[in-house]
């Protein structure tokens, strides 16, 4: 297997000091570890998505990077500096968009942005930024009367008005209409082009898929998979499809792997433990370009170069086992599939 499903930790050597480098971060609330041995690296000039279900520890991790919380163990470095000890040097270089906005309710939107801009020596042009993000329409409206999307756009503007080198965006698209979201994504891409390191948390798959250069899937306080979207989708040359089969549980996976075309070798690979979110262990097999797994009892996914021969091999395999599939579908594997495979399909 390539590095796609390995936990993060290896810094990308291509650009000097990383925007963010977290090693073995632990943060406990009332004795309960919300972040538990989390490690990841985010590069400058790249968008890094921290993807995970609610309660996975995303916000706490970002707050440790922002100097708002002090880690219980592990190290956090932003631009090579300690967010708590070197706060004075870091604050002017780091832009923050909090999940709950952090906007005072009685103040007008335009006034709030000008106020944050006043903290910096050379802020962005407030008028230009307001135009970019469509803030002009409500610049004289108090924050209390803004819609969720308007507040998010204002909070994003406040995060970038100081020309930061690193930006942390906690759930930036929450509550946004599609137009707002487009404007926000365009701005994020522009920041990246300017060399800014952007770290965003999200549970929106399309956001990570469309924006992120690097994705870290977080669950139960640690990173369970890292890689580019392409790597996470196991999108090696020719491997672009999935087959999903629902049948009886416990079918013979090695037999399926042997039946598939281009299966040069059959190696047993265990997916990284999703931390107990699933009731069953995820058995997975990888052979050549194929990754095959029983993602939950009786549900099998095959990722690889899906073609008519491959599909025939699957049905032959089912026939060989004397099993009739309840459902069989082919399709493009999405990040959502990866995410659900890793974190479990159960409500929590």
């Amino acid at each position: 297997m390539p590095s796609s499903l390995a936990p993060a930790g290896v810094p990308d050597a291509s650009t000097g000091v990383p925007a963010v480098e977290i090693r073995g971060l632990v943060k406990r609330y009332d004795g309960r570890a919300v972040v538990d041995g989390l490690s990841l690296v985010a590069r400058q000039g790249a968008v890094t998505a921290v993807l995970g279900p609610n309660g996975a520890g995303k916000t706490t991790t970002v707050e440790c990077c922002e100097g708002l919380r002090t880690p219980d163990a592990g190290t956090v470095r932003v631009l090579g500096l300690d967010p708590v000890a070197d706060a004075r040097d870091l604050r002017p270089r780091v832009g923050v968009m909090l999940q709950d906005g952090g906007l005072p309710t009685g103040v007008r939107a335009g006034e709030m942005l000008r106020h944050v801009a006043a903290m910096y020596a050379r802020p962005r042009d407030v008028r230009e930024l307001g135009e970019r993000l469509g803030l002009d329409a409500f610049a004289r409206t108090t924050v209390r009367r803004l819609s969720g999307g308007q507040r998010q756009r204002l909070a994003l503007a406040a995060a970038v008005v100081g020309r930061p080198a690193v930006v942390f965006l906690d759930e930036p698209s929450a509550g946004m209409d599609p137009q707002s979201r487009r404007a926000v994504w365009d701005l994020v891409r522009e920041l990246r082009a300017d060399g800014v390191g952007v770290v965003l948390t999200t549970h929106l798959m399309d956001e990570a898929q469309d924006l992120a250069d690097q994705v870290h899937v977080v669950d139960h306080g640690h990173v369970i998979a890292s890689g580019t979207v392409r790597e996470l989708l196991a999108d090696r040359p020719g491997a672009s499809g999935t087959v999903r089969v629902e049948a009886s549980p416990g079918l013979d996976l090695p037999a399926l792997v042997r039946a598939l075309p281009q299966a040069r070798e059959a190696a047993l690979v265990t997916l990284p433990d999703a931390g107990g979110g699933l009731g069953t262990a995820s058995a997975a097999e990888a052979a050549g370009p194929w990754v095959v797994a029983e993602v939950e009892p009786g549900v099998y996914t095959l990722t690889g170069p899906v073609d008519p021969q491959a599909l025939a091999a699957v049905t032959e395999w089912l026939a060989g086992q004397g099993v009739l599939a309840r459902s069989l579908s082919t399709g493009q594997r999405t990040l959502e599939d990866v995410f659900l495979d890793l974190t479990g399909r159960h409500l929590r």
Binding site: Y120, R163, A165
Partner: peptide, 28 residues
């Protein structure tokens, strides 16, 4: 410690000392 970050971020926060990026304390 900050040269790497500076190198990849021209025109932005790279110029001058760190303190110069913020407005003076009295103004803040």
């Amino acid at each position: 410690t900050t040269t790497g970050a500076d190198a990849v971020h021209p025109g932005g926060p790279a110029s001058g000392g760190d303190r110069n990026l913020a407005s003076p304390a009295w103004r803040r």
